[in-house]
């Protein structure tokens, strides 16, 4: 499947916020191989977003280290780290005062790519995410639907061809039907590019559908980190078991309908 090349290593990472009695992220040790699609599952407040945001140093760990392809990111300038990583958030965050094309081109422009290279890349990416460049390049975000905006968000994140993509509940604000389409698209994009994806979600179906392996978090700690099949077959603790059971109950009505 992938070469055993660790893309992301969390070593004993802890983070505590002011005004909080407990750790948001509590002694996390995780190794993620290059090319994997990893989903992080948990309810709100479990620390999954905090964990994600430490990879691009929007948050800094209080304890422990994070290594990207063997390099301790605390030794590198934060801005440089972020320019090597793709970042997609739930609210999309497209800059409303820039056209779609300008949004996608933001980081290449910061890196001072040549104009032709930027133009070609923008067209390539928009096509990749299923948006016809001629039609969409010069529109403004306010003229696109939520699903379309998020596709642009993806294109923007992919612009600098990062080896690592961070996605924080990217489809949380999108309706169920469009979400399914976007999930399939994302899997297709991941399959084609060999990049490492870290995908945060609170939806167990999404987590299990998308992830090669799933990290289940609760109260800052990792409960289980394994393939979806193994987790479903051997839940590590009560919390995970509760998750599996509630998912199974939801599916029950579909099973019963088939009988």
């Amino acid at each position: 499947m992938t070469s055993a090349n660790p893309a992301i290593i969390f070593q004993n990472v802890c983070k505590k916020f002011e005004n909080s009695r407990t750790n948001a992220v509590d002694h996390v040790d995780v190794t993620i191989q290059e090319g994997e699609f990893i989903t992080i599952l948990g309810s709100s407040g479990c620390g999954k977003t905090t964990l994600l945001k430490m990879v691009n140093r929007l948050y800094e760990p209080d304890e422990g280290k994070i290594l990207l392809f063997g390099e301790d990111i605390s030794t590198v300038d934060a801005v440089k780290v972020r320019r090597r990583i793709g970042y997609v958030i739930q609210q999309v965050g497209l800059f409303p005062h820039m056209t779609i094309g300008e949004n996608v081109a933001v980081v290449p422009k910061l890196l001072k790519w040549k104009k032709e290279k930027i133009d070609a890349r923008v067209k390539e990416l928009l096509t990749l995410v299923g948006l016809e460049p001629e039609e969409y390049e010069n529109r403004y975000p306010s003229q696109l639907s939520g699903g379309q905006q998020q596709r642009v968000g993806l294109a923007r994140a992919l612009a600098i061809d990062p080896k690592i993509m961070l996605l924080d509940e990217p489809f949380g604000a999108i309706d169920a039907i469009n979400r399914l389409n976007l999930q399939d698209e994302l899997l297709r994009i991941h399959g084609g590019l060999g990049k490492t994806f870290l995908f945060v979600t609170h939806d167990i179906h999404e987590a299990f559908k998308m992830g090669d392996r799933v990290i289940i978090m609760n109260e800052g700690e990792i409960c289980q980190f394994d393939t979806p099949r193994h987790i479903a077959a051997h839940p590590a603790n009560d919390f995970v078991e509760m998750l599996i059971r509630s998912a199974r109950e939801q599916e029950q009505i579909f099973f019963d309908a088939c009988q």
């Binding site: 320019r83 090597r84 958030i89 965050g93 800059f95 923007r156 994140a157």
Partner: peptide
């Protein structure tokens, strides 16, 4: 935060 997150 997005702007910061993508590397500005």
């Amino acid at each position: 935060e997005t702007a910061r997150g993508i590397g500005m």
